[in-house]
Amino acid sequence: MKEKEPKMHMQHRRLSNAIAYAVLILISLIWLFPFICLVLQSFRSYTEGGGAMVNYLLPKKFSLDSYKALFGEESQFFKWYGNTLIIATFVSIFQTIFILAVSYSLSRFRFKGRELLMRFWLILGMFPGFLSMICLYFLLKQFGLTQSGAIPGLILVGFASSGMGYYVCKGYFDTIPKSLDEAARIDGANRAQIFGIMLLPLSKPIVIYTALVAFMAPWCDYIFASYIAFGYSDSYNVAVAMYRWVNTNDYQGYFTRFCAGGILIAVPITILFMCLQKYYVEGVTGGAVKG
């Protein structure tokens, strides 16, 4: 572990800073290394190893083969990409609404059964989610929301139970003084108005945080999405489709394409994330302290 060196001597400080920089550069390299590899592999030409995995880092010949394959006419990649974008957008919107609604209720109201409800949800959260996968599949099937209807199905599953994830947001609402509510009530506002007109604008960081977290989840969902959309490739999301490229023997030489696809997913999300990083940090920190 690296410690601070608070000696007053300039030389000492310089030395310790130099060590700190060295460590930071090393850490940065380690953290960036897989991404550098991904980028390099995605530009490897098909003439080398035919798009399969290789055991060296620098491609001998750079080309856009993999990207061309993804953008090619036969490729469904952008269909899957679009599916994921649609799912992520809707889940993000509805989940944010749900979480805000639940958080506001639990933060500002004291009703009978409130404690019981919170404790009940806490207990529910301790059951592993995979347990209910097959049950959810058949529930959704009852409403025609599997296979060809998997996209609305995945949106529904994505947000329907999201009310349980209220902790962070409620914690944030708790820090907004109740006296503001009282003042607004004296001015004649009802609680719906207080929520919409007063509290929401004050909670911009937490709204963005909630929406961002919800938006990012569907991009990684390869387990549940494959369970719901199986056998209907038009409904796949990008994770389900790409996961097959590296894990079944039907796809020979798709490795560089996997890397290229990964880059195409990662870049927009990373940019979005970087732009909203401030709010994310605020949400994470607040949530951690409140627990």
């Binding site: 199986f230 056998g231 209907y232 490739s233 097959r244 079944t248 023997n249 039907d250």
Partner: peptide
């Protein structure tokens, strides 16, 4: 539909 042989059986 492209469904690999292993997946087909599972599904």
């Amino acid at each position: 539909e492209p469904v690999g042989e292993g997946d087909a059986a599972n599904n």
